[in-house]
Design a protein around this nucleic acid. Structure first.
Lengths: 187, 187
DNA sequence: GCTTAAGTTAACAGATCAGTACACTTTGAG
DNA sequence: CTCAAAGTGTACTGATCTGTTAACTTAAGC
């Protein structure tokens, strides 16, 4: 089992899961789309669940890397970075093939809080929250924990609204809201 | 086909879909849980998709009724009602068997924007948005549309966070954020 | 060149999926 | 009482689901 082969499988599976959903994607479809044999697939991953968890882990890494780097490139100070995070989100929303947040979808399809897939999804959100708690702290917020919760909350809300609402610019509205909350917290 | 029988089926199916998800719930399971025969089920609903859409419609009606009445009971003025909506959400989050928002889950499982199920989910969110646009207007907001978008965004974010984040009080944080946004909009 | 691990094809479980066919029973209105 | 609508049980498609089995090929390291 060449380890890079495994990574390639996870990466391709991730795309299909993101595009079509978890329950709606069968192993047979994945086998066809990755061009690998079924036997080989099951040598790399004991179960479909294992594959999904691996895909979520990869997505977590990819997304956080992209998100934080993009924010870093757009803003210098911590306070500006909090605001810039909504510009980064807006870029994401406008990407071709944007289909919402994989972790929200994972949490929606696997609702049991003890389920490994749900746990993995929750972990991603937790890591985002921790990151913005630190940034809020650096920005000098009176209550960094609360501000971070609110920022993440606005981000989640913007993602969901970007998927389900028309004639609306959720990233812009969320950014505007974040500006006010930030100003309050720094005053 | 007695119409009340149909309503009963939709109501029971709704519970199962909410608890277990859409793809994860087969018609066989629904037949067992409702105690109806499969033939009868398919006389009431041409396809599973039809049943899901009917369940979403019922949920939309039930939820909006409950939500708006609860808010009405808790607050008098439009401005207070906007804030009270987050107290109502909190009550919902603390209910036994709370499993997040059925419409977010529907949108997550049926991602194609033209899919009837996705359309139905989007409609629910649109109706909420319209309601709060009117309330924002009554409250005397400078930009009722923007404020309503932001309120709905905070609500969605709170729901998602209530599902995926621990050690956090999303309803409280969202309420706090809403207070600031509202104050700004009325100033 | 031999061994071994990683890969292949292809068929097969056994369960479950949405949906149908058919023959039967219940029930309510005229 | 009669008739039609609404309901029943059960068995059945044909497809798809996750996962397995067995025999074969490829390729790299010693």
């Amino acid at each position: 089992m060449r380890p890079n082969k495994r990574d390639e499988l996870v990466s391709k599976a991730l795309k299909v899961f993101y595009r079509d959903g978890f329950h709606a994607t069968g192993m047979d479809k994945l086998v066809v789309e990755t061009g690998v044999s079924k036997t080989s697939m099951y040598k790399h991953f004991r179960t479909k669940e294992d594959l999904i968890v691996a895909a979520l882990r990869l997505r977590d890494e990819n997304f956080r890397n992209w998100f934080f780097q993009r924010v870093d490139a757009m803003a210098e100070t911590p306070a500006e970075q909090i605001i810039a995070s909504f510009d980064a989100l807006k870029e994401w929303f406008e990407e071709d093939g944007f289909r919402g947040c994989l972790f929200i979808k994972a949490g929606a399809e696997y609702q049991d809080k003890d389920h490994p897939i749900h746990v993995q999804a929750a972990e991603h959100k937790q890591l985002l929250l921790e990151h913005f708690t630190i940034v809020a702290q650096q920005a000098g917020a009176h209550d960094p924990q609360k501000l971070a919760c609110q920022i993440v909350l606005l981000q989640e809300g913007a993602i969901v609204s970007a998927v389900l609402l028309k004639n609306c610019d959720p990233a812009e509205d969320a950014k505007d809201a974040a500006k006010h909350l930030l100003a309050k917290e720094l005053a």
